Amino acid sequence: MNKELLDIRPRELKFTVERKKRSLCSIQLVNNSNQYVAFKVKTTSPKNYCVQPNTGIVQPSSTCNFTVTMQAQQETPPDMQCKDKFLIQSTIVPFGTTEEDIIPSMFMKDGSKYIEENKLKVVLVTPVHSPKLQRINGTLKLDRAHEASIPRNQMLNGVENYSPSYMVASAVEELKPGKEVDSKPAKSVEEFKLEKEIEELKLAKDNEEKKLAKVTGELNSKLNEWKVKLSEADNSITKLTVEGTTIIQERDSLRQELAVLRRTNGVRVVTVGFPFLFVCMIGLIGVALGYILHS
């Protein structure tokens, strides 16, 4: 295929490395085709990263996001280099396919389907810290290291143009001495982004738990149905076994009766007394003798 199934934005994963702090990175997948596309995310270091979700379906002309969380690092890498890689596999699936229908065999290269693979590298960046304020003679001023690095651009009218951070420091300096200043640092953009991504992860986790509970309930329901059917099958087998035993007993009884009948039919019947024809002959002879004697 000349055209990629998914457009990946961005093409690299950037993580802000801070000691003992987790870092998040979000990747967007764009499906520009008119097909359902299934994707799967793999990494060379599964222990160091958490991908949520690691599989999914991108519907036609739609987008899908997944978040990668890098586990907290005990020590910051000295050279800020990382050899970890991520692999995104994607393939076309039938219309109506859902996340629950995804199986590992969908992404196996058996030659019968097209599997697209995109590799993403990991880039480590250092955190951006805000300028430090020091209290000098009862007022807050910028740290000298930051104050020395403030660029001053000369305007045409002779007014000096300071950077926004320097203007903030000047405004703080002009505060009244008797007024208390909140020394709690404001949250940076990275912290807000991190909190937002954590909330999204919690929401995704809750959704996954709900789906898991639903699937578990359905499996338990099906298991109960199979148990009922198995019990009915056991009862039917027991009933058939009893009926089979009864039929065998009746068959044996019939065989015995048949054997008795056969033996009875095989015995000759012995007639006791004179035959009927002999009696008739004697009678006729008697009648003839009587007739002769009377005549």
Results as ranks from 00 to 15, higher is better:
Asp234Cys: 11
Asp84Gly: 02
Gly217Met: 04
Ser23His: 08
Leu6Pro: 02
Val51Asn: 02
Cys82Phe: 00
Ala186Trp: 08
Ile198Tyr: 10
Thr91Cys: 15
Thr139Trp: 07
Gly273Ser: 13
Gln256Pro: 00
Met108Asn: 06
Lys21Gly: 09
Ser221His: 10
Pro104Gly: 08
Val228Leu: 13
Glu147Cys: 01
Glu99Ile: 01
Glu250Lys: 11
Thr241Lys: 12
Gly286Cys: 09
Arg255Ala: 15
Lys109Ser: 04
Lys20Ala: 03
Ile282Ser: 10
Lys113Trp: 02
Asn161Arg: 11
Gly96Pro: 09
Val242Lys: 06
Glu174Leu: 09
Met281Val: 09
Ala186Ile: 12
Leu261Glu: 10
Pro185Tyr: 06
Gln89Ile: 00
Gly138Cys: 12
Leu194Phe: 12
Asn54Glu: 02
Val272Ser: 12
Thr139Met: 12
Val272Arg: 13
Glu195Cys: 00
Thr91Lys: 06
Met70Gln: 08
Ser62Ile: 01
Ser253His: 10
Lys227Leu: 11
Gly96His: 09
Thr63His: 00
Asn32Leu: 08
Lys21Pro: 12
Leu212Cys: 07
Glu160Phe: 00
Leu194Tyr: 12
Gln81Cys: 03
Asn157His: 05
Arg251His: 12
Ala148Gln: 15
Asn2Arg: 11
Ser170Cys: 15
Val270Lys: 14
Phe15Pro: 03
Ser295Ala: 07
Ile103Asn: 03
Ile92His: 05
Ser23Glu: 10
Asn224His: 03
Asp143Ile: 10
Cys280Glu: 15
Val267Ala: 11
Asn2Tyr: 11
Val168Leu: 13
Cys25Leu: 05
Ala259Thr: 04
Gly178Cys: 03
Thr43Lys: 01
Leu142Tyr: 02
Ala148Ile: 13
Lys205Val: 01
Thr98Ser: 13
